[in-house]
């Protein structure tokens, strides 16, 4: 986190570029809607059953990332924010997976 090495307080501007335009927001919103429709579609497609869990996880991850990067501006804001959030997210994910393994959810 090089910004935090700034010798004098406030001397280094945070990495904060302009927030996206409303048009970008609408495009992201449309994508989110489409992905949700696809998810529900997949749900009713019997052909997809064998791979349905990974497909759902990937699709929802796409939505998650889009909202975090664009609506929550993580793509544009200081990396400190991404670090704080992704840190919590990764730790939570690791602990969920560890608990599932410990309770033998994967192995049955």
């Amino acid at each position: 986190m090089d910004r935090e090495r700034s010798p004098i307080r406030g001397a280094v501007k945070p990495r904060e570029r302009a927030h996206p335009t409303p048009l970008t927001y609408v495009k992201v919103g449309t994508t989110l809607a489409v992905v949700t429709v696809v998810e529900v579609g997949v749900f009713y497609l019997h052909a997809m059953r064998p791979v349905i869990i990974p497909v759902f996880i990937v699709l929802s991850a796409v939505k998650f990332v889009l909202v975090a990067m664009f609506y929550m501006h993580l793509k544009f804001d200081s990396r400190l924010f991404s670090g704080l959030f992704v840190g919590g997210l990764m730790l939570a994910t690791a602990i969920i997976l560890a608990l599932l393994a410990l309770f033998a959810v994967f192995t049955g």
Binding site: E4, V12, L80, F81, L84, F85, G88, L91, A92, I95
Partner: peptide, 26 residues
């Protein structure tokens, strides 16, 4: 001005959200 140039309240909000990840994670 702050040491990072970031507003206290915004840093607070992100720290809070990082913590909330663990709440909903549990």
């Amino acid at each position: 001005e702050t040491a990072t140039g970031l507003d206290h309240r915004k840093v607070l909000m992100w720290v809070f959200l990082g913590s909330e990840c663990m709440f909903f994670g549990s």
